[in-house]
Nucleic acid binder design. Structure first.
Length: 993
RNA sequence: GCCCAGGUGGCGGAAUUGGUAGACGCGCUGGAUUCAAAAUCCAGUACUGCAAGGUGUGCGGGUUCGAUUCCCGCCCUGGGUACCA
């Protein structure tokens, strides 16, 4: 074999590992470049060809940056806590740590085969105690901080206590749930419990009773981004709302910075938009409505609106059914109806509420609010289209300007005031934010844009509300009722949470006998015997020692999956630091991630949480930047191409000797044939029909007389069945393998095509085990080599696009590498290169390639990069070029894409092994591309007719004169005089007739 | 519904500031080599037409000497989101 990729690739993998070729030095002399792949969860299924797509791209870029003289940090590790390992543990009784390690080993084996230039000395695993020690540490820091809105900065809780003790809380602008106002004297008079309860409402990590997404099937709480359409992201189980005491993260505090920070990031608009929508900033104003019959200032209904300009269009107010005032504001006549409505909506899950968007429902409370400007009575309603958890849980309904209010008003026959000048609202609300306001006292005649600030002014002057910004973003629930996650460094004393001193971290995950919740419904950690905190010896001790004096119960929840992944990119900079989560020097040198590659599915989860923690750590001065990922590329999904066989169904065979015909599979041609028959309403196939004849041929006699096709238009003549793609090649089924693949296929009758082959149908869909369309990288590496796989995955198309996987083209890429090999070898596979001066053609090919390749790499266009290598090798082969100086440069450029073959040939060229990784990327010299002549396309009215070779430096005027004199020009002019002539030197000539 | 991305041969895709649409690869057709096959090499391959030519980048308009590229309207596919006041 000439190009022995198996030998070459194993040789260099070994070399790289032994020589630690890709170890990144924490060296401040070279400029740094940080290339990171999104943290993988090591699933039991291993990698399929879709997974390494991004890794290959980032690896190419990392290697390219090394060639440019950068000190490259390109690490890999595992997000190794998580649900699947735990569920597997529940099923099999195996410790998740064991199965996780096995999965990681398999991942590593698969990754190693592809030749990535990861610095494995920096590997991190979130489930390692020396990693989660620092996750716990960060949690304690969050607990110890609050957010100052005035300075837009995180501060230590001690500064807040100082404020409280000297000024009370009324002058503090903090992100808080605290509604109580107190003076310094009052604060100083509070007992410890009361103080701590108040502080909880300020802490960034806080314990609170909150409505959570409870998933009974998984037995745990889920974050908002883990719930998709009312079911769990993992497993698709129903989710309901439940009030539970949970740890939460006050991410809301950072909402403004999380939105504005997006502007400086080099991410796709689509991800930025997703984050913006998720955070959901809306600017508006709060307005207080007095309630009729209540002088008590406590009974004021506060609403939030983004359209204060429509305040004179208010015709009723709607409260959420959960609004605290509902019971008191309901009159006795309306009591029964309102109570049953409140009860009915409390029983609805969030999903039901979402599903019934079209179903308008609500009840009149019987009481009235007072319009703050007109003094008119305004009906009070409840309706479940108003959400308790957003804004104030109450809205001022303006049916003329809001479609939901319009629908509600129309449904219940409520008044619809029109406050828009010359706008018809009889069919629908007018929701555009433009136009002129009418019938609105001091706002009349103003445009919407003028009226909004004018209304806010008036509202503020009247002291019935103020301009306000609301966010849709909710605080993130941080507790999970699971075993396989980071334990909280928290014990409980008198019902209050206390942090374990950071000196004693990590608090190591205890052993349990089983991974299910306890009989009394506690999380799995409730099963642990040794799970109490001894505040004297500062260690975890047996629960029997709990005395609530010096030994206390520990937290039973664990942290969610996103805890460990919110800061892992920092740990890679300093993975073995035992005294800090990352040293200041190292974080200052490496800074944030220059290039982050991963899927877009983390848009509102990981990518938001990691930004939040980064801003937090930045505020505290631990790190020197407040955005973690400067540039991000989201690779598209690789879809599987499934193969289908067609099982005959809904066909009735009329046979001469009662032969039972079942288990019949037809090839693609016959599938199309039968479908066409049915579609043209031919339901009976006679003896002279092609398919009947074919059947008799197979059965060996005149057995089938006719076939009846089911005439029901819905029924399918043949039902497609997935077959394993490993027994199909180029859509051709391996019939033997098919029959042996399943018991029921043993006696299958196959109706083949003319050529005696069985052709499968195909479908492009997500890669999954159940569709038998999973392609693992391992098989392809075995068959073609890692270099071929790397280049082929890149060759498929633009990185960001999702595309179907199809191995059809892989031969083309493999042939390219063999052709490259032949450039360096003669027919007998002897290594032969020439030291002669290269030809001008070869220099031109080389420099054209340098130019295109650099441009392609800079814009992450890896697919065109591969094409350019192919073009270069084709041209050099045609030129019979084997010049060392040309091939050397070509190899350097190729080494990021196909590192193994590049190393091998580099060594053969006589350079030091491994040194191609630190060679210099060739410099483009435009002189080699200078052409003496240019072939001008000559077009008439924009249509190209012919071309003519002219000197490249010919002036515009000369080109024009020359072209006009040509016979062909005269021919195409057909006797007419040109109106205008456009000459773009070096580009085109266009003659307008 | 709203937001975002995309729509180019038989297929994956290319065309970087508006300038020869279909690079490169697959597949297919024909040929060379071979006892034969694989591999390799050569030629062809958008559609239509015998040809000259005509038509072509989802559809309909527009700007321009010239549009896959810019503008307006629409259709389709994929992703996100969903009573957010």
């Amino acid at each position: 074999m000439e190009y022995n990729f198996r030998e070459i690739e194993s040789k260099w993998r070994k070399f790289w590992a032994e020589n630690q070729t890709f170890k990144a030095e924490d060296n401040a002399l070279k400029p740094k470049y940080y290339v990171l792949d999104m943290f993988p969860y090591p699933s039991g299924a291993g990698l399929h060809v879709g997974h390494p797509l991004g890794y290959i791209a980032s690896d190419i870029f990392a290697r390219y940056k090394r060639l440019q003289g950068f000190n490259v940090l390109h690490p890999m590790g595992y997000d190794s806590f998580g649900l699947p390992a735990e569920q597997y543990a529940i099923q099999t009784g195996q410790h998740p740590d064991k199965t996780t390690k096995e999965n990681i080993a398999r991942y590593r084996e698969q990754l190693d085969k592809i030749g990535f230039s990861f610095d494995w000395s920096r590997e991190v695993r979130t489930s390692n105690a020396d990693y989660y020690k620092w996750t716990q540490w960060i949690f304690t820091q969050l607990f110890d901080c609050w957010y100052n809105n005035k300075t837009q900065k995180t501060e230590r809780i001690s500064s807040l206590i100082h404020f409280f003790a000297t000024l009370g809380n009324s002058s503090i602008d903090a992100t808080t749930d605290c509604e109580l106002t107190f003076t310094a004297e009052e604060w100083n008079g509070f007992n410890h419990e009361k103080k701590e309860a108040i502080l909880q409402q300020y802490r960034l990590a806080y314990l609170a009773d909150s409505w959570v997404n409870w998933c009974p099937a998984l037995g745990t709480v889920l974050a908002n981004d883990e719930v998709i359409n009312g079911v769990s992201e993992r497993g698709g189980h129903p989710v309901e709302q439940k009030k539970m005491r949970q740890w939460s993260m006050r991410i809301k505090a950072y909402a403004e910075r999380l939105i504005s920070g997006l502007d400086g990031l080099d991410w796709t608009d689509s991800i930025k938009d997703q984050q913006r929508n998720w955070i959901g900033k809306s600017q508006g104003c709060s307005v207080n409505f007095q309630v009729e019959g209540f002088l008590d200032t406590e009974k004021v209904i506060e609403v939030f609106t983004t359209r204060p300009d429509t305040i004179f269009g208010v015709s009723f107010l709607v409260l959420a059914p959960e609004h605290p005032f509902v019971a008191t504001l309901t009159t006795s006549e309306r009591k029964d109806a309102v109570e049953s409505y409140v009860k009915a909506s409390s029983l609805k899950t969030e999903r039901d509420r979402q599903a019934n968007v079209k179903n308008i429902s609500g009840e009149f409370l019987g009481s009235y609010a007072i319009h703050p400007f007109t003094g008119e009575k305004v009906e009070l309603w409840i309706g479940d289209y108003v959400l308790a958890s957003y804004g104030t849980g109450a809205v001022m309904a303006v049916p003329c300007g809001d479609q939901r209010d319009w629908d509600f008003a129309t449904h219940f026959g409520l008044e619809i005031k029109n406050i828009f000048k010359n706008i018809d609202i009889s069919e629908a609300a007018y929701t555009e934010k433009e136009g002129v306001i009418a019938d609105s006292d001091f706002l009349s005649g103003l445009t919407v844009k003028e009226a909004i600030p004018a209304a806010i002014n008036a509202i503020e002057e009247k002291q019935i509300g103020k301009g306000k910004t609301n966010f849709r973003l909710r605080d993130a629930v941080f507790s999970r009722q699971r075993y396989w996650g980071e334990p909280f460094p928290v014990y409980y004393k008198d019902g209050l949470p206390h942090m374990i001193d950071t000196r004693y971290l990590p608090v190591v995950l205890p052993e349990v006998e089983n991974y299910l919740p306890t009989a009394d419904g506690q999380p799995p950690l409730g099963n642990a015997a040794v799970w109490a905190w001894d505040t004297v010896d500062n260690q975890v001790v047996d629960k029997v020692n709990i005395d609530h004096k010096t030994v206390f119960p520990l937290e039973l929840n664990t942290m969610p999956g996103w805890a460990g992944s919110s800061w892992y990119f920092l740990r890679y900079m300093d993975p073995h630091n035992a005294t800090e989560f990352v040293s200041k020097e190292k974080v200052a040198y490496w800074n944030n991630v220059d290039l982050y590659i991963g899927g877009s599915e983390h848009a509102t989860g990981h990518l938001l949480y990691a930004r939040f923690w980064t801003k937090f750590l930045y505020d505290l001065g631990y790190i020197s930047f407040d955005e973690p990922f400067q540039k991000m590329i989201n690779q598209g999904m690789i879809l599987g191409r499934s193969s289908l066989v067609y099982k005959a169904s809904n066909m009735t065979f009329e046979t001469s000797n009662q032969t039972e015909i079942s288990n019949l599979f037809v090839s693609k041609f016959w599938y199309n044939y039968l479908t066409t028959k049915k579609n043209s309403k031919i339901f009976k196939l006679d003896k002279d029909d092609l398919f009947v004849q074919k059947m008799n041929l197979i059965l060996g006699g005149e057995i089938v007389n006719s076939i009846e096709l089911d005439s029901d238009p819905i029924s399918m003549i043949c039902s497609p069945r997935h077959v394993d793609i490993s027994i199909v090649e180029n859509d051709r089924l391996d019939i033997e393998a098919f029959k042996n693949s399943r018991e029921e296929y043993k006696n299958a009758i196959l109706v083949l095509e003319e050529e005696g082959i069985f052709v499968c149908g195909s479908e492009v869909e997500k890669m999954s085990k159940s569709k038998f369309n999973v392609q693992t990288p391992d098989e392809l590496v075995d068959k073609f080599g890692a270099d071929t796989l790397r280049m082929y995955e890149m060759f498929l198309g633009p990185l960001e696009q999702s595309k179907p996987w199809d191995t059809k083209g892989i031969n083309g890429v493999h042939n390219f590498l063999r052709k490259l090999w032949r450039l360096f070898h003669d027919h007998e596979n002897n290594f032969v290169v020439s030291d002669d001066a290269p030809s001008n053609d070869s220099l031109k090919t080389l420099h054209k390639t340098i130019q295109k390749l650099s441009q392609d790499l800079e814009r992450f266009s890896f697919n065109t990069g591969v094409s350019n290598f192919m073009i270069a090798v084709n041209e050099l082969s045609d030129q019979k070029c084997n010049n060392r100086s040309i091939l050397r440069e070509l190899l350097i450029m190729l080494s990021p894409y196909a590192p193994h073959i590049a190393e091998e040939l580099w060594e053969k060229l006589g350079y030091e092994a491994g040194s191609i990784n630190v060679a210099s990327f060739p410099i483009f010299n435009p002189e080699y591309l200078v052409e003496s002549s240019f072939s001008y396309p000559i077009s008439f009215n924009g249509k190209v007719r012919f071309s003519v070779e002219l000197p490249a430096d010919m002036s515009r005027e000369d080109v024009e004169a020359h072209v006009l004199k040509l016979d062909k020009t005269t021919q195409y002019l057909e006797g007419k005089t040109p109106k205008k002539m456009i000459v773009v030197p070096g580009r085109i000539v266009n003659i307008v007739v």
